[in-house]
């Protein structure tokens, strides 16, 4: 399991690939393209991660920590729902913002 990413890397990769298609990167070779692609994937993951965990209150953070530490069968959907955290919207907005920055104003 890749512990560097919060979001599944394949999903991130798909998203980045679609963005690249809409706005090809100015690169000289495949190696550079791959490097930029990887950096974009990481940046997107960091953005989403920051948005999710930055939205937590102290209490929510503590609760989540408890679930991560002690509950192997935790229902995280339930956790975010009960705490009125619209996780879907947070992730979607983060990705939208990233896409906007990446594309420089083009429609996603």
């Amino acid at each position: 399991m890749d512990n560097e990413y919060l979001i599944d890397r394949q999903t991130l990769g798909k998203f980045i690939d679609e963005l690249i298609k809409k706005k090809p990167l100015a690169v000289e070779d495949t190696e550079e393209l791959n490097k930029l692609r990887e950096e974009s994937i990481k940046a997107l993951d960091d953005k989403i991660t920051k948005a999710i965990f930055g939205s937590l209150t102290k209490e929510q953070d503590e609760k989540l920590n408890q679930l991560l530490d002690h509950d192997e069968d935790a229902d995280y959907q339930e956790f975010f729902s009960e705490n009125n955290i619209n996780i879907q919207e947070i992730v979607k907005n983060s990705m939208q913002e990233f896409a906007d920055e990446f594309l420089g104003g083009q429609d996603v």
Binding site: M1, N3, E4, Y5, L6, I7, D8, T11, L12, K14, F15, I48, T49, K50, I52, F53, G54, L56, K58, D61, L64, N65, L68, D69, E72, D73, A74, Y76, Q77, I87, Q88, V91, K92, M95, Q96, A99, V108
Partner: peptide, 30 residues
């Protein structure tokens, strides 16, 4: 603390699986 929690989450397959579904739905929604 938030950063620490995020680090833990990155090692938890269960929550990552949840986020994978959320991210996929977001991709579709976009």
């Amino acid at each position: 603390d938030a950063e620490g929690t995020a680090g833990k989450a990155k090692k938890c397959s269960r929550i990552k699986r949840f986020f994978a579904g959320v991210a996929l739905a977001a991709v579709f929604a976009l």
